[in-house]
């Protein structure tokens, strides 16, 4: 992570993402309960938990795809409220990769990657295309730049989606079950891309059930259940000695597969 802060001490203290007492309701259903989470620049977090435990809701709050009713979220020093201006600032700093890729089907791979930098950051086409080609090269898909998403495999589409998010030069990346919609043989190429990104120091929060990825990459693994953070710790500790009954049960169900 290349922090441009003048004092290294300040950079170490200022979190990239800070959630304090965040709560969210869907009507009368409480989706998130007292979420406290601080992510340092360059830190990699893996969020896991049973379906419906609020993992996706949590990360979708960070770029305001979901609103929250209580608490506060600060992203790179910007307090995320309902002001469109601050939402825009935060979204420019935070990239997101979705389970269903969500590539724009009517645009080519290259156009998918240049649209937001040109429209939102005001880049000239040449500059946007140069960046896009560099990042498509990084996810090893530059040769498909002029194809449409439907002509690519799922794994290729997800790698394009990662490149598209990177083209905005975000300071942090959110991954919402990026491999869950993929055929098994394509999971690895996407995970390898994410591992490469992690090695380059990107701040990442990944909702995933890929525990191998969590072991290899995560600084912290967080387990959620019923909208609350139940347990968190470094992967070695998390997998060896889960403290809570619900964590043990969840790991017992998910780990034999790996």
């Amino acid at each position: 992570m290349s922090t441009s802060a003048s004092s290294p001490a300040a950079a170490a203290i200022a979190p990239m993402i800070a959630m304090e007492g965040v709560e969210k309701w869907y009507g009368t259903f409480k989706a998130l309960t007292d979420i406290n989470l601080t992510v340092r620049p360059g830190e990699k977090i893996v969020l896991c938990g049973p379906s419906g435990s609020g993992k996706s809701t949590l990360i979708r709050c960070i770029n305001h795809l979901e609103t929250y009713e209580k608490g506060r979220i600060v992203v790179d020093g910007v307090l995320l409220d309902n002001n469109p201006k601050t939402i825009d600032v935060v979204r420019r700093e935070v990239g997101m990769v979705f389970q269903q890729f969500n590539l724009f089907p009517h645009l080519t791979v290259l156009q998918n990657c240049t649209l937001a930098p040109m429209r939102s950051r005001g880049l000239a086409r040449d500059a946007a295309e140069a960046t896009a080609r560099r990042l498509l090269g990084r996810v090893k898909i530059l040769d498909q730049a002029d194809k449409y998403p439907a002509q690519l495999s799922g794994g290729q589409q997800q790698r394009v989606a990662i490149a598209r998010a990177l083209c905005m030069e975000p300071k942090a990346m959110l991954f919402d079950e990026p491999t869950s919609a993929l055929d098994p043989e394509m999971v690895k190429e996407v995970l390898d891309t994410m591992i490469g990104l992690a090695k380059d120091g990107m701040t990442m929060i990944c909702v995933t059930h890929e525990m191998g990825f969590a072991r290899q990459v995560a600084d912290r693994v967080i387990f959620m259940s019923e909208g609350a953070i139940v347990e968190e710790g470094p992967p070695a500790e998390f997998f060896q000695n889960p403290r809570h009954q619900r964590t043990k049960k969840f790991l017992g169900e998910i780990l034999p597969r790996y």
């Binding site: 305001h64 825009d88 979204r91 420019r92 935070v94 990239g95 979705f98 969500n102």
Partner: peptide, 9 residues
Amino acid sequence: EAAKALSLG
């Protein structure tokens, strides 16, 4: 959602 996440207005 993808467009929003890319900060497209």
